[in-house]
């Protein structure tokens, strides 16, 4: 019981931190900070409230593989968009010799 209430207190504290920090101008880091705090909260909920710590290996495997798969998914999609040179569907800029959509990127 004590553990549950401590966790709840920690969750509210993290919520407050995240909410407060959103008023501080952190520039590009603000999203990263907010997501890191969110990750801490999620870990608390999953391990303590959902009792993953006490579950059997098979349950941990299920949770772990879901997390791994989501990570792969988001990473490889992001890797594409982050390394695309010009967005392929932007209207082509007036350019005398239009060679390929990826003029700035390493070619095929």
């Amino acid at each position: 019981m004590r553990r549950l209430l401590l966790t709840a207190a920690a969750l509210v504290a993290l919520w407050g931190a995240s909410f407060g920090l959103s008023y501080v101008e952190l520039g590009r880091a603000s999203l990263a900070v907010a997501l890191i705090i969110a990750a801490f909260k999620a870990v608390l909920v999953v391990l303590v409230f959902m009792e993953l710590l006490h579950e059997k290996t098979s349950v941990k495997l299920a949770a772990g593989s879901a997390l791994l798969t989501v990570t792969i998914f988001v990473t490889l999609v992001a890797a594409d968009v982050a390394t695309r040179a010009p967005a392929p569907l932007d209207p082509p800029e007036p350019h005398p010799t239009h060679v390929s959509p990826g003029t700035g990127a390493p070619g095929w």
Binding site: A34, L35, K41
Partner: peptide
């Protein structure tokens, strides 16, 4: 789990 999903949707939609 519904809570966990919201924990991530919140910063993405409201905070930064």
């Amino acid at each position: 789990l519904v809570d966990v999903v919201w924990i991530f949707l919140w910063p993405l939609f409201y905070l930064a």
